[in-house]
Design a binder for these strands. Structure first.
Lengths: 112, 112
DNA sequence: TGGCTATTTGGTAATATTGCCAACTATAAG
DNA sequence: CTTATAGTTGGCAATATTACCAAATAGCCA
C-alpha cells in the first residue's frame, strides 16, 4: 500500500514546479519543441531540457524526434482537469485569509 | 501569469509526498486527529504534525480543536478525483515499460 | 497546583532539487 | 568534411525538504 503512495508522489512531484506546470499547460494546447518552450519560459535551454526529462520520466509527457527537433506532447490530458480543483483551493484559501484580515480590522475598531 | 503557476506549484508541492498523500486519502474518508494519523503512518508524531502543517498552509486541509485533540479534514474533496488520473499515468507508463522490455527480449532472440 | 496527554515548534544533519555553464551528441546543409 | 542548430548530459553551488530529537504549549483531570 505504501508503494502506491510513493508512486503517486513521484508523479505529483514531477508536476510540482512552476516551469513544469507551464510546460504541461502549453502542451495541453498541442505539441511543442524544446526551443519553443525555452523561448516562452526564459530559462537556459539545459534547464528546460531537464524539466522535460523530469516530466517524461514520470510518464506525463512523451517525445517525438522530427529531424533535429524534438517535439513533446502530453500523454494523459486528464491532468488538466486537476488544475481546476487546485485553483479552487487557491481561491478559497485567499478568500478565507481575506476574511481573517477583515475580522482583525473590525476587532481592532471595537477596541479603539 | 507566472504567479499563477507559482501558486499552483505551491499547492501541488504540498501534495508531493507519500505520507501527505496518505493523509489526504485518509481524510477523504472522514476527519481524523493527529494521533490516529500518526499511528497509521508510523513516523514520529512531530513529523506527522509538520506534514499536516504543510497541507494546511497550502489550504488543502483545515483543523478543528476538540479538547486536547486536533481534528483535520479535507477542505476540497475534488482533489481525490485527480488521483484517478495519476493512477492512469502510472499504469500506462508501467505498461509501456513492459512493452519495451518485451521488445528487447524478442530482439535478442532474433540475434541469437 | 501538578501531572498527563495531544500537539506544535526549534534545531540540525542528511538528502534532494534547482539552475546555470560547459561539454557532448545528433542531424541537416553547404 | 565542416559548420550550424537543437537538444542532452555532467558537474557544481545554492537552496529546499525531510525526519528525528528535545523542548515548549495547551487543555484536562486529580
Amino acid at each position: 500500500m505504501k508503494a502506491r503512495y510513493e508512486a503517486r508522489a513521484r508523479v505529483i512531484k514531477a508536476l510540482a514546479h512552476p516551469s513544469r506546470l507551464f510546460i504541461v499547460d502549453e502542451l495541453s494546447r498541442g505539441e511543442k519543441c524544446v526551443c519553443e518552450l525555452t523561448e516562452k519560459i526564459g530559462s537556459d535551454i539545459s534547464t528546460v531540457s531537464k524539466h522535460l526529462s523530469v516530466l517524461k520520466a514520470a510518464g506525463l509527457i512523451q517525445d517525438k524526434k522530427c529531424g533535429t527537433q524534438i517535439y513533446y506532447r502530453l500523454r494523459k490530458p486528464c491532468i488538466m482537469e486537476f488544475f481546476a480543483c487546485i485553483e479552487l483551493v487557491i481561491e478559497s484559501t485567499a478568500r478565507e485569509q481575506l476574511e481573517l484580515v477583515e475580522l482583525e480590522v473590525s476587532d481592532q475598531n471595537k477596541v479603539l
